[in-house]
């Protein structure tokens, strides 16, 4: 055990992901996301090619050196002590810079105004809400459920039927994955 604060991470084990879309559906339902916004997405590569097909689930990866946080012109991002990357929707102007900086295409933009201009950015919060009062009505409305504050696992990982989607502090996640890889007799 290191005495440093744990950093929360997602990891999707592509050997286990069966492309059931439960994570993205559960996420959208739990946070009552509008259509067109998908905080979590399941991606399949080489669809139908035997032996090569691989699926994985992608959302905000809560980067340690989050590039979104570095480029935001209004500084609306903040990284919690536990490593969860969150942002303030009341500050966000919907410029899109975080999307250009993001390696994972995580930031999403609702088209809610006239002429289809971009509204405040929306992304995975690792079910940890936002800067508003925890579990307040406004927080739920803007950021969705705050399951972390209630001691629950993020929705996507909670519903993953094959336990492909892992979430927790980086060390525990890598321990679980290492055990799995050893069990499968793989090298990496």
């Amino acid at each position: 055990m290191s005495n440093e604060m744990a950093r929360m991470k997602f990891y999707c084990d592509d050997h286990r992901c069966i492309e059931c879309f439960a994570c993205s559906v559960a996420c959208a339902e739990a946070h009552e996301l509008p259509t067109g916004i998908s905080r979590r997405k399941v991606i399949t590569l080489h669809d139908g090619v035997e032996g090569k097909e691989v699926s994985t689930s992608i959302a905000c990866m809560h980067c340690t050196d989050a590039p979104c946080e570095q480029v935001c012109p209004v500084d609306c991002f903040y990284i919690r002590e536990d490593g969860i990357v969150l942002h303030d929707k009341d500050k966000c102007i919907g410029c899109g810079y975080c999307l250009y900086a993001c390696p994972f295409g995580a930031p999403q933009f609702p088209r809610d105004g006239a002429f289809g201009h971009k509204g405040a950015m929306d992304k995975c919060t690792m079910c940890a809400g936002g800067p508003l009062e925890t579990n307040s009505e406004k927080e739920r409305h803007l950021y969705g459920q705050n399951r972390i504050a209630e001691g629950k696992v993020p929705m996507c990982a909670a519903v993953c039927s094959t336990n492909a989607l892992l979430v927790g502090d980086a060390e525990s996640v890598s321990n679980i994955y290492r055990k799995r890889v050893a069990g499968r007799g793989q090298r990496s």
Partner: peptide, 22 residues
């Protein structure tokens, strides 16, 4: 105003600037 958005604290003012800019 958009470039120095953090100086202006983000939110309504900067959002309005962004919309006028467009």
């Amino acid at each position: 105003i958009i470039v120095f958005g953090d100086f202006f604290g983000g939110g309504t003012l900067v959002r309005m600037a962004k919309n006028l800019h467009g």
